[in-house]
Design a protein around this nucleic acid. Structure first.
Lengths: 337, 337
DNA sequence: CTTCGTGTTGCAATCCTTTTCATAACTGAC
DNA sequence: GTCAGTTATGAAAAGGATTGCAACACGAAG
C-alpha cells in the first residue's frame, strides 16, 4: 500500500496537519520541521491521494479537452500544445474526440464536466446555446471560436486570408476560388469574412464553393468545381482539403501551380512534404493550445472576475511551391473554359 | 451545488446506504424502493461524486494511455479505438504523448500510475525493465509489444511480412529492400523476423536498410539507399516512411510501380489517397485499441489471476497501386545499375 | 410456538486530505 | 510584569460515497 499522510506524520513525529502544510504551504511551518517532514515524505515515497484531496478541495486537477477529430493533424498539434501547458501546471488532461458529430459533443461535455476543473472546447460545431450543457461550476475556454464573452483564444483568420489573397493578386490572379469548410464552423465564417473584404480590396473576383467536409475527400469532391469555376487559384479551408484538391487536380491533368495555384490553411506537417510543397496560411497551433490552457487556468485561479478573457494569435502566410503566376490564358471575362 | 447522496436519501425517504445500493447494486433493494430512489435521483440530477467514490473504493475510473506520438496517424487511430472501448465501460482515459522520447515515458508512467486504475502502454521504445517504473498496484497492458508474461495485444507482423513478400515474389521481384524502423522497436524486430523467414521461403534476396526514424523524413533519407541497393521492390517499416520514400523516389525520377514497387505497413488513412495509392499491410488499429482495453479491464476485474493474457490480431495485405510486376531489366546478378 | 432463513433497510465506520480553530510558546512594547 | 501580536503546531471537523454489520419483518419449517 502507498504511504498516507499519517505514516509520514508518525515517522516525522508531527501531526498530519503539519505534514499537509509542510508540503502545500511551506511558509507556514518552521524550516527545521519542514525539512524533516519533506525528507521523511520523500523517503516513504509519499504522494497525496488525489481523490482525498479532491474531495475536500473540490478540485480534480484535471482539464478536459474536446476536439472534433484527433486524427486530424491540426488538432493533434493543438493537443500537444495543451498537454504541454497543462503538464507544466501540474494538470492532467482528458481528451474527448467527437468524431465531428455535434451531438456527441454535448454528451461528452456533460460527462466531462463532472470530473474536470475546466474544459477547453476546440472549434466546436455545436450551436452556441448548447454550451449551456456544461454545468455553471465548470469554466469553459473556447479555442477557434468566439461566443459571447466566454474566454477564448482565436487566430486572426481574416488577416490570414488577406495575406493569401494579396499574394495571389500579386501573382496576377484575377479570379480566386474558395473551398469552404463546414457551414457552422466559426473559423470558416471568419475566413469568409476576411476573404470577402480582401477580394474587394484587391479588386479580384471570388468563386465561393461548398460547403465541404474538412477532410481529404472534401477536397477531392471540390476539385472539379474549382476547375469549372474558371478560377486560376484556389484557397482551401484547410491543408487536408488542399491535399485532396491537389490529388484530384493531378488526376484531372491540371498542373500545380502552372494550371492552378493552391493555398491551404493551418500548415500541418504534411504540407511541406508534398510535391510540390504547399503554400499555406500557418496557424500557431501549439501556441494556441498553450494559450487556451493559460486562459483557462487564469479563470480558474481568479474565479472568473479577471484579466484578459480573449487572445487573438497572428497567422502567417508561408509561400512554398503551389502558388505561381497566373497562367497566360487568364480569362476573367468569359468565366470558365 | 450538485446534489449529494444525502439529498437524494432525504427526498426519497430512505437512508444513504439504500440510495447507494439502489444505484450500484440494484438487486439488493426492493423494486419499489429502487424505482422511487432512481426517479428521485434523476429528478435531482444526482451523480455520485467520483472523488468520494474513489476515496473509498480505491479506484479512479480512469485509464492511462501512453503513445509515442499522437500526431502519427497510426496512433491516433489506436487512440480512437481505446477511447471508444473505455467510454463504453464508463472509464475515462488520460492520454500521454512521449514525443518519441523514452525518458519522458518513464516519468509519465510514474506520474500517471497514481491516478489511473490501469495503463495501456502503446509504445515500443522504452527498455523492458523500465516497465517497473509503474507501481505494482497498477496493471499495465502492452500493445504492439510482448514483455515476459504481461498482458498484451499484438498484431501478426511476421505474417504480414509473409503476405507482402509472397505478393512481391509472385510479381517477379527477386531482390527486396526493407527500410527498417527504430532498432529498439518490438514490431520492427517482429517484421524483420517474418521477413527473413519469408525471404528464405520464397528464395528471394533481402537488402536490409536502416535503422531509420519512423517518419516521413526517414523514408526520404532511405530512398537513395533503396535505389542503390539494386532491389526492385521495397517494404517500408510503416506507411509514413513509405510516403517519404515515394516522395524521394519521384524526385529521383524513379516511377512507382514501374521502376520500383513499394509496400507500406499499417494502412493509415492517407495511404489510399496518394497517387498511386499505396499497397500496404493493414493493421487493425482500432480493434487493437479496443482489444487492449478489454484485456486491461479483465485484468482489473479478476485481479490478475485470469483468462487469456495475450491476443494476437491478424494483418492483411491490401494491394493497391504501388506494386507491379518487376521491371524487365531485372538484375539480381550485377547488384545495381 | 420457537427457530431459522431470507429479503430489506439503516447505522456507523472508513477512505485520506485539507482547513478552521484553538492552544501554546515566544517576542517585543508599554 | 503584563498584554498584544506573532509564529508554530495540534485536534478535530468536514467532504461524499461505500460497505460490513446489525436489525427488523415475514413466512416457513420443525
Amino acid at each position: 500500500m502507498a504511504a498516507t499522510i499519517r505514516d509520514v506524520a508518525q515517522a516525522a513525529q508531527v501531526s498530519q496537519s503539519t505534514v499537509s502544510r509542510a508540503l502545500s504551504t511551506p511558509e507556514l511551518v518552521n524550516p527545521e520541521t519542514r525539512a524533516r517532514v519533506v525528507s521523511v515524505a520523500r523517503r516513504l515515497g509519499y504522494e497525496p491521494n488525489r481523490a482525498a484531496r479532491g474531495l475536500i478541495t473540490g478540485r480534480t486537477g484535471n482539464l478536459g479537452l474536446i476536439v472534433p477529430d484527433i486524427a486530424n493533424p491540426f488538432f493533434s498539434a493543438v493537443v500537444k500544445g495543451v498537454q504541454g501547458a497543462a503538464r507544466a501546471a501540474d494538470y492532467s488532461v482528458f481528451i474527448a474526440d467527437t468524431d465531428e458529430e455535434s451531438e456527441s459533443e454535448i454528451g461528452l461535455l456533460r460527462a466531462l464536466s463532472k470530473q474536470v476543473d475546466g474544459i477547453i472546447l476546440c472549434s466546436p460545431r455545436a450551436p452556441d446555446d448548447e454550451l449551456e450543457a456544461v454545468g455553471p461550476g465548470t469554466p469553459v475556454a473556447l479555442m477557434n471560436r468566439r461566443v459571447g464573452d466566454r474566454p477564448s483564444v482565436t487566430v486572426d483568420n481574416a488577416d490570414g486570408m488577406r495575406q493569401a489573397v494579396e499574394h495571389l493578386a500579386a501573382l496576377g490572379h484575377r479570379r480566386i476560388a474558395y473551398v469552404a469548410g463546414p457551414r457552422t464552423s466559426w473559423s470558416n465564417s471568419e475566413r469568409e469574412r476576411g476573404l470577402h473584404r480582401s477580394i474587394a480590396d484587391t479588386g479580384t473576383d471570388l468563386a465561393h464553393l461548398g460547403y465541404f467536409p474538412p477532410q481529404f475527400d472534401g477536397g477531392v469532391a471540390a476539385a472539379d468545381l474549382v476547375i469549372a469555376s474558371g478560377a486560376t487559384a484556389v484557397i482551401a479551408y484547410n491543408d487536408v482539403v488542399a491535399l485532396g484538391l491537389m490529388s484530384r487536380l493531378s488526376a484531372r491533368g491540371v498542373a500545380v501551380p502552372e494550371g492552378m495555384s493552391v493555398v491551404g490553411c493551418d500548415d500541418i506537417g504534411m504540407s511541406s512534404m508534398t510535391h510540390p510543397a504547399l503554400t499555406t496560411v500557418a496557424v500557431p497551433k501549439h501556441e494556441a493550445g498553450r494559450a487556451t490552457v493559460g486562459l483557462l487556468l487564469s479563470v480558474l485561479a481568479e474565479g472568473g472576475a479577471a484579466s484578459a478573457l480573449h487572445r487573438e494569435l497572428p497567422t502567417q502566410l508561408i509561400v512554398r511551391a503551389t502558388t505561381g503566376v497566373a497562367r497566360a490564358s487568364d480569362r476573367p471575362a468569359d468565366g470558365h473554359s
